[in-house]
């Protein structure tokens, strides 16, 4: 491959990686605070993507970028309610039980979507989908560039929220030491619900950024759940910096594997990275051993 093609592959991979960072940040936040492996992550992203799709369709005709605050807030609310109503009540005991509860939720979500929306893949035809920006020798679709920039911005804002606000500090306190946080008067159950809500809100934002250049179908959750887990274990479960680095690496790996091995075999990159990391370095690239 010529260096130009590799460069273009890396740039396109980074752009895709931006979304993975956002999706994985939600997952890693939920893991870091609640110690829950949220298997429903992909399916909830799929539901948010359908929300964007239906907001775009007539009669509303809402542009996905304008819908972002609405869908993000809706996703937060859904996550909060889901935690208060189901996950927080039932997720006790072994971590496998929590995994099974979230698996059950994902089965329900996937099939509610299949029942209501049928199995067809849906896309939205935004006018700017065909616009390309050239970055050196690489041509990048405008929506991908926007999604990358916006993802980074949202992650930075989330970082500020976590370090500067009282709520953010309380979340970090609970993540570090639940009992201690309870003793100083933090409402830990509320922090759990808020953290789960923020994790799902990340999916709402990601759905708005994805839809201008991606499709949605009831099985979209399956596509993203493995990518999200791979990203998170690559960077180290519970680590924000890890999710950032992991997402970008996964994006580039996926893009270069596709270039080298073709569309079909190139997909092998993600499960392979996931397996290798878990087998060889389960704490992730940046985690402590």
């Amino acid at each position: 491959m010529s260096p130009d093609i590799i460069f273009a592959g890396v740039v396109n991979g980074l752009m895709a990686g931006g979304i993975y960072v956002l999706v994985a940040t939600g997952l890693t936040l939920i893991y870091g605070v609640l110690h829950i492996i949220n298997f429903a992550h992909g399916s909830l992203l799929m539901l948010a993507m359908y929300a964007v799709f239906f907001l775009f369709r007539p009669p509303l005709g809402l542009d996905p970028y304008l819908a972002l605050p609405l869908v993000t807030a809706g996703a937060f609310l859904m996550g909060y309610v889901l935690y208060r109503g189901v996950i927080g009540r039932l997720s006790h005991g072994r971590d496998e039980n929590i995994l099974l509860i979230t698996l059950g939720l994902s089965i329900v979500a996937d099939n509610v979507a299949l029942f209501l929306f049928t199995g067809d893949t849906q896309t939205i035809g935004v006018a700017y989908a065909g616009n390309y920006i050239s970055l050196g020798p690489a041509l990048v679709p405008l929506p991908k560039l926007i999604s990358f920039g916006a993802s980074m911005l949202i992650c930075a804002l989330l970082g500020l929220f976590m370090s500067q606000t009282d709520m953010g500090k309380a979340i970090r306190a609970v993540a570090k030491e639940r009992q201690g946080a309870r003793l100083v008067g933090i409402d830990v159950e509320n922090i759990f619900a808020v953290s789960y809500g923020i994790g799902i809100a990340c999916l709402g934002a990601a759905a708005c950024l994805l839809m201008p250049f991606f499709y949605v179908s009831p099985s979209s959750g399956h596509v993203f759940v493995l990518i999200a887990f791979t990203t998170v274990v690559l960077g180290g479960m519970g680590s924000f910096g890890g999710a950032l680095a992991g997402g970008l690496i996964i994006g580039v790996v996926e893009s270069l594997a596709g270039l080298q091995f073709g569309e079909q075999l190139g997909q092998l990159g993600i499960p392979l990275v996931f397996i290798l990391i878990l087998l060889l370095r389960p704490t992730g690239l940046f985690g402590r051993q």
Partner: peptide, 29 residues
Amino acid sequence: LSFRAGLRGSYFALVTLAFAEAFRILANS
């Protein structure tokens, strides 16, 4: 491979998911 690496519980569940996915992609290719 998995038990040698000490994978248990949820991590074992997830790695089997990834193995099945890897086999699916291979069978496709």
